[in-house]
């Protein structure tokens, strides 16, 4: 593995992230809209269970959404780089494909975790009470989930060559992933086919891990669906699998 290369891939992403203020603003506007427009509206319809309001219930899902969008966005910038040629500069370098995938994966991880951390700052506004340990746990989970989703995004990017595919990815992959992640409604209340789809979605386990840490309640319809150990195992296993497969797919073309 070439650590120089991994470092510089992350540094490039970070530099662009800092430079493009508008990207950060719009990335942070989305979770705010969902929390305070959708969440607040729905709170009137959905009666709180286990002492939790609907806005509080979707907070872990909104953290997941923040990570989902920024990780996928960061990873499929590879498609832009392919389109504009820059990716060739990376592929022609004496750098293993594994390092490229890890470097790009960590790029997404850094920018997503920063955004998730900013969204996390809202918890007192929503009336949630989190201790220091919980906050640290949320951040660690955010890192793991960001890496998992970023590497999934890299895998997606290997299949597309031009940025026209951007809206396809957004509409047919990212949005369904969001709605089928347990972010907006508990997985255990879904009808069977949807519940199965949910269980195949990597983001589900991320959102569930957040629920495990953030929610005070351990039972009831709005509690977490799996154990924290299950969530983390699935996330780490999937990350590993995505890295290996993506590195394979980036191997020399015939």
């Amino acid at each position: 593995m070439e650590f120089n290369a991994i470092y510089v891939l992350v540094a490039r992403e970070f530099k662009k992230f800092v430079r493009e203020r508008s990207r950060l603003v719009s990335a942070l506007a989305r979770p705010l809209i969902w929390l305070f427009l959708v969440g607040a509206g729905m709170s009137r319809l959905v009666s709180p269970a286990g002492g939790m309001s609907y806005t509080q219930f979707i907070f872990p899902g909104i953290l997941g959404m923040t990570i989902l969008f920024s990780s996928i966005f960061s990873s499929i910038s590879i498609i832009w780089d392919k389109e504009f040629g820059f990716f060739k500069e990376i592929l022609a370098a004496p750098v293993s494909r594994l390092s490229i995938v890890i470097g790009k994966g960590l790029s997404g991880t850094v920018v997503s975790t920063i955004q998730a951390a900013i969204v996390l700052l809202l918890f007192p506004v929503l009336g949630l009470k989190l201790g220091l340990l919980q906050i640290i746990a949320v951040l660690i989970i955010a890192i793991a989930v960001s890496f998992c989703i970023s590497t999934f995004g890299i895998l997606l990017a290997t299949f597309y060559e031009s940025y026209e595919s951007f809206s396809v990815i957004m509409n047919f992959i990212v949005m369904p992933m969001f709605f089928l992640s347990g972010a907006m409604y508990p997985v255990k209340l879904l009808p069977k086919p949807l519940a199965v789809a949910t269980k195949l979605n990597p983001l589900t386990y991320g959102v569930d891990a957040f629920k495990n840490v953030i929610f005070p309640v351990e039972e009831g319809p709005m509690s977490a669906d799996f154990s924290l150990a299950t969530d983390m195992t699935v996330i780490l296993f999937l990350s590993f699998a995505f890295v290996v497969i993506a590195a394979r797919l980036f191997e020399r073309k015939k």
Binding site: E2, N4, A5, Y7, V8, A11, R12, K15, K16, R19, D81, F84, G85, F86, F87, K88, E89, I90, A93, P94, V95
Partner: peptide
Amino acid sequence: QDSTLDKDLTAYENLVFHAYLYG
């Protein structure tokens, strides 16, 4: 044949990126 520069980075940054990439 076709440009492979990162147009959103400066000239200096493009070269530094390359230097790191090549160890």
